[in-house]
C-alpha cells in the first residue's frame, strides 16, 4: 500500500510556493512538496488552511505569487498561453461541487474532458471526433453510467454527478489527478465507493493523485502519504501510519478530537 520509498519519478514538485491574494490574505507560505508517480497523496487541514489554493497552484487555476511548480519535467510556472494549456492537459481536476455544465448532457460533459486536444471549431458546436465519443462512452461505462449519457447533467444525483466528473477527468487522459474535497458534498454512504473508484483508476492507469480530504477514516484507508496544512504552512508530511493523536492536534488545534478511534 505504501509508496515505494524513493521509487518512481517525481510527478509533481512544488518549490517554495507562496500565494498572497489581492487584499493581503496569505494563503500559502513557502510550500515545498514532492509527489512521486503513482502516489496517492492526501492533503489534510482545516477549511481555510490553504488546501484548495495548493491544488489550484499546481494546475495554475491560481497563479502562485512566488515559487515554482513542475509536472514531471515541465515547469508549470514558466508556461503561458498555449504551452500552459498543453501542460494542463496532463492534470485533471475533480471538485467538491462537481462543477459540471448543468444544462449540457452527461455525454457532452464527459467529452469536455477532451477539449484540450479536440479541434476548436467543431468543439464550439459541441461536436467531437468519433474516437472521442467512443472513449467518453467507455469512460461512462467504467463509472457505471453507461445508459445515462443523454440525460441532462443536473438530472443526476450528487453521487452520479461526481462520477460524471471523474469520467470527464478520465477522458482527459491525465497523468495526475487533483481532487479538491471530492466527497465532501456526497452522502457518507457514497464516500467510500467514490474514493474506491478514484483509487482503482489511479492504480489501473498509473495515475498520481493529490486529494484533499476532511474525513480521517478515508485518509487512513486511501492515502499512501499525507501532507497536512495549517495556516498555509506544511506542518506534517509522511506516511499515514505515523500520523497519531498528537499530530492530529497539531493540525486541527487542541480543541479538536478525532471522530473515531482509528487513529490511536
Amino acid at each position: 500500500m505504501n509508496a515505494p520509498p524513493g521509487g518512481g519519478r517525481v510527478a509533481v514538485r512544488l518549490q517554495g510556493v507562496c500565494k498572497v491574494y489581492p487584499g493581503g490574505v496569505q494563503a500559502l507560505t513557502d510550500v515545498s512538496l514532492e509527489v512521486r508517480e503513482g502516489e496517492f497523496l492526501v492533503v489534510l487541514g482545516l477549511s481555510g488552511s490553504g488546501k484548495s489554493t495548493l491544488l489550484r497552484c499546481i494546475n495554475r487555476l491560481v497563479d502562485p505569487t512566488l515559487g515554482r511548480v513542475w509536472i514531471f519535467d515541465d515547469e508549470m510556472t514558466a508556461a503561458e498561453g498555449a504551452r500552459l494549456r498543453q501542460l494542463r492537459r496532463q492534470v485533471a481536476m475533480i471538485f467538491q461541487q462537481f462543477n459540471l455544465v448543468k444544462r449540457h448532457s452527461v455525454l457532452t460533459n464527459v467529452l469536455s474532458g477532451s477539449l484540450g486536444r479536440s479541434p476548436l471549431l467543431p468543439s464550439l458546436f459541441l461536436r467531437y471526433p468519433a474516437v472521442e465519443r467512443e472513449q467518453a462512452l467507455a469512460a461512462l461505462a467504467r463509472m457505471g453510467l453507461r445508459d445515462r449519457g443523454a440525460s441532462r447533467a443536473d438530472a443526476l444525483s450528487g453521487g452520479q454527478q461526481q462520477r460524471v466528473a471523474v469520467a470527464r477527468a478520465l477522458v482527459q487522459r491525465p497523468r495526475v489527478i487533483l481532487a479538491d474535497e471530492p466527497v465532501a458534498s456526497l452522502d457518507p454512504a457514497l464516500r467510500h465507493s467514490l474514493m474506491r473508484q478514484i483509487e482503482q483508476l489511479s492504480k489501473e492507469e498509473g495515475l498520481t493523485v493529490i486529494c484533499s480530504l476532511h474525513d480521517i477514516d478515508l485518509v487512513k484507508r486511501y492515502a499512501t502519504r499525507l501532507a497536512a496544512l495549517r495556516d498555509g504552512h506544511i506542518v506534517y508530511e509522511g506516511p499515514p501510519g505515523d500520523f497519531d493523536r498528537g499530530t492530529f492536534r497539531e493540525i486541527y488545534g487542541t480543541d479538536a478530537e478525532p471522530a473515531s478511534n482509528t487513529l490511536v
Binding site: R85, R89, A92, F95
Partner: peptide, 21 residues
Amino acid sequence: LGPVEAITATGAGPLQVLRYG
C-alpha cells in the same frame, strides 16, 4: 465560476471556456 474552473483545468482555450463554462 465552478464550471469555468473545471473547463479551464482540462486545458481548453479561452473560446472553449466561454462556450462551455
